[in-house]
Design a protein around this nucleic acid. Sequence first.
DNA 1: CAAATTATCAAGCAACCTATTGAATAGCAA
DNA 2: TTGCTATTCAATAGGTTGCTTGATAATTTG
Lengths: 221, 221
Amino acid sequence: MASRNDKDALFDAIAVMGKAFASPRRLELVDLLAQAPRTVDELARASDQSAANTSQHLQALHAAGLVTRTREGTSVRYALADDQVLALWLALRDVSVVRLAEVERAAREYLGGEVDAIGRDELLARMRSGEVVLVDVRPSEEFEAGHIDGARSVPLEELESRLAGLPADREVVAYCRGPLCAYAHEAVRSLRAAGREARRLEEGWPEWRLANGPRTRPRAA
Amino acid sequence: MASRNDKDALFDAIAVMGKAFASPRRLELVDLLAQAPRTVDELARASDQSAANTSQHLQALHAAGLVTRTREGTSVRYALADDQVLALWLALRDVSVVRLAEVERAAREYLGGEVDAIGRDELLARMRSGEVVLVDVRPSEEFEAGHIDGARSVPLEELESRLAGLPADREVVAYCRGPLCAYAHEAVRSLRAAGREARRLEEGWPEWRLANGPRTRPRAA
DNA sequence: CAAATTATCAAGCAACCTATTGAATAGCAA
DNA sequence: TTGCTATTCAATAGGTTGCTTGATAATTTG
């Protein structure tokens, strides 16, 4: 017979997963890992926290089965476990944007003024007809770990110095980590200030990847 | 310029949503609300906890925007905010089943032995040809709040006494709250013990509802 | 083997969360 | 109004979590 104790044990176990998402620092790590696998040290620097603390949080994520860990010489590289985990994180983030006014407010504050955006379908159409150039303004390691077909890597920091290399007669579309990442916003503002036509892509690399189906999956079930 | 403080504020805000899912008691409430809206008192009884505690958890869920609250005379009825929230809860639950061995173990313990299951497509086909009778073994209030088209309500408690009312020449398919709910398992065991042919539907009402598209949505955007 | 680098462990303190209790409030009905 | 029920509030005690610090372990490099 199904008992209260067994039921409690079941929800206790599921709550382990919930708790993994209950810390802002851990969420930031998940968000970074959604772009590319990284070592503890890289994550610590990218999220402005001590290595010890980062390691601790990563272990918590690992205990919840959200990340994998592989040793690489003297360092350890963490990665999101799979696309189901990525989808869960994106869903949590999206729900929080919609349902929590404070997230919306904090996002506006962080992103700065709104800039013109373009959707997936329009981008694909305009790319096909050669009207736009698509730039990935994330750090180059993230570009190398995966990017939108046809994009060129122009990390935000190098944008100004590489302006001349971008065709002046085409609109520039910039994308980055996702709708809550400031890189694309800043890139567009910077491009506009330089007199270019520019918009940001509404979504980032993880959303694009998930939407275009789990990367050419092997034919077997 | 995007600052570390602004970024922290953003993740702090998103973590509010994560924290809402970090308590087993709250998850049980969400799971109950996924079936039907309920009053505080009903939820307290269904989850075996004090009214005060239940109220407190419901307020936490409300603060995270996950539930709505309407006063009905002397009581207050809570409901899941929308289908996006429901989908998030199901996603969290599914990820935890897949990635946490302990959840899988606790589920096996709670559900008892595995029983034969049937998928959505096969069920639809067999219903169309009149080979099966579909029974909803959840409490009748949940059935009334929404159920699969063509199902009849036979709450688990009444199953034995209403056996005679079920056609003996057709296979019985039972469904309940979802894959982690024990009702359908128990119903099938009980039916088999009584000599009937019986299987459980792999999914429950919330999954079915989400999969068959958000309930005939109004034509306007 | 020693030094350097990277990651993890262990302990401690502060902040936060949870369940309990008993009191307070809101609506309803006599 | 009074009594009744359902819900919420307030205070508290116990437990858990998070960040810091300093020490320890694993691996590569000289």
